[in-house]
Design a binder for these strands. Structure first.
Lengths: 197, 197, 197, 197
DNA sequence: CCTTAATCGAGACGGTACGTCGTGTCTTTAT
DNA sequence: ATAAAGACACGACGTACCGTCTCGATTAAGG
């Protein structure tokens, strides 16, 4: 019946993670089970248990496997506004994808700090560092009076955006993005104020 | 064996919700089951199902029952800064309580808009409206140049605080609160700018 | 909403039994529940429990109510053969009706002798006595050499017929009836033998 | 706690059927539940459902397991009378055992022809074929004028006996057996008539 | 005629069992 | 060695009825 030979090693593992992702997309996070993934991958649960002991571990691995490359490079559009829009847009797309697929992952974090760390590193990336870079460049161009901002000032626009993403699981639309950039980020960062004022 | 008479109505319902809260505290949200709550309440699952069709519904009711009094009244400390600190502190305490007890509730929201709405109304309260009131009063006192702020401007500090709460499930400490008030909220709302500038 | 007045006494009781019979016909004995009967009768289970404590009691009452009149009169067709055919046909119709509707009643008898007695009296009637009467008449006519038969001899044809009815829950067809009459009953009863032989 | 290793295969199946039989004896057929049998066998209902989809299936298997040896061989006592007594005695013992243990099985037959067939084969055996064999031998010995009997003639004594068994769930006593043999079976089969008459 | 007693109708309570699904462990067979 | 298959023991699910109970609404009957 199975015309192909028995899978092993990397080939098998890839197939397992693709099966997990497929199940995740089809039925949603709360309905992901070892049973269903094993059926999708045409293997037995034992094979899955040997690799990932719990459902969150499996789902996380599937997410990482499916979308590994988080943009860690700062965009450069020539203006602070354009750069911020680019960063926020990317973050919005990435996070809404993840949250729509696996909202329940969030609730697993408290009991599993390693999971949180992995998600942060692999998926969310580090927009804060990137934004600091944008601000440095903008200050160098004279767009901003200073690049020295309090941590809370720097991250507040990002956090506000992320909160909306977490709550809605939907990407932000253009109006939202414009508001955050124009009404929150740029004013906070000091755009429009004279350098030295 | 059962020394008391059969419980009914409000008495029973209170006992159920206390049992649910007790189980929630003991085993944590992901392990809350109808079975365990029924056992804790010394009743049958049927009685629970008649009232709350799903675990999130039950947990939410337990949370609301356990900590019902959401401050819906705007504080009045005499200064905008004091008012904002009060609002944020209350929100921080309230949300961190809820999230520590039932982090998984968050992941239920997308599939259950009614749940989200209930949480918003019963637990989160409506900080946005309250903050608008604070701002109106501050503008009337001359602390702010205007009370007309964009929606995103108004909620950004709140959202930033809430994001941190959601991620950490811990109340914000004084330093965090000071930063959000002094570095984010007050600058955004225009404090320190001359009225008419 | 309920346009009619509230039912009581005999009117109500009749309605309950008709509802029970209706449910019995529709879903079969093993699926008869107080719940379903109460719904069918548009009343509450309490009203049923007040009258019949168990399902068999209720079903039996419904059966008796629905088909109360067991023929207790011996037919008189002029020949023993015709009389036996008539008795067996009647028994076959009656029993197969009952058994098709409520086969499980049989299994309730051991734990409930009163039930068995009621069924026997109300439903099965007493074919044995009737057959004895037929035989007496036949002997008087000279069709049989004697009317003095052993109990087992007398009832064997009836019992054989009843066994088939119990097993098949179907009425006996003409061929079966002919065989029992011609091959079993008449030879056993001595028809064809000379009186005095 | 569980001192022994996990049971599997035949060992487990035997234990399950013994547990089922034990429950059947203790509480009676109408009270046999998967739950109780699983508890008695110290296993889970799943294991039972994998093997027997319904209660009647399970009970029947338990009955067959508990009393497997149905005499399918015709006795040979030298006389037709002795042979018939032996067959009827065996049938009486066997059937009354079964019916006393599980009277409700009877009511399951119409909805489950396979069950009926299994019971017939496994438990009731096939007395009809056996009796035909006895008659053949008796005719060969000259005890009977002919071995060619109508089907109804052949089975009537058996059916009469079975009907009494079904109704009483008690084994027939010697008097009953004598009557059936001497007053019903032997006369019907033609014993005492001259061959060729 | 009006009060009183009965009982109807409705529905909750505490409980048992159902049949299903998924879990994590373990054993067996075969590649 | 490990993939694949599948059983085992367990826990929980959501549903259906059970038998009991309380409670208001309605009805029939008696003072």
């Amino acid at each position: 019946m199975p015309p192909e030979t028995r899978r092993r090693g990397q080939v098998l593992e890839d197939a397992l993670l693709e099966a997990a992702w497929s199940v995740l997309e089809r039925v949603g996070y709360p309905a992901v089970t070892f049973e269903a993934v094993a059926a999708e991958a045409a293997t037995s649960r034992t094979v899955l248990y040997r690799r990932w002991p719990t459902v969150p571990d499996l789902v996380l691995a599937a997410v990482v496997h499916h979308a590994p490359a988080s943009a860690t490079v700062a965009p450069d559009t020539g203006t602070l506004r354009g750069d911020l829009r680019a960063v926020l847009t990317h973050m919005s797309d990435r996070l809404s994808d993840l949250l729509a697929a696996a909202p329940g992952l969030l609730s697993e974090f408290p009991g599993n700090p390693a999971l949180l760390e992995t998600v942060r590193a692999e998926v969310f990336g580090s927009p804060t560092a990137i934004v600091q870079e944008l601000i440095d460049r903008a200050a160098a161009r004279g767009e901003l009076p200073t690049a020295e901002l309090a941590a809370a000032t720097l991250t507040a626009p990002l956090d506000a955006a992320r909160y909306q993403l977490v709550m809605t699981k939907q990407p932000l639309d253009d109006v939202d993005l414009d508001e955050i950039v124009d009404q929150v980020a740029l004013p906070l960062y000091g755009a429009g104020r004279r350098a030295g004022s």
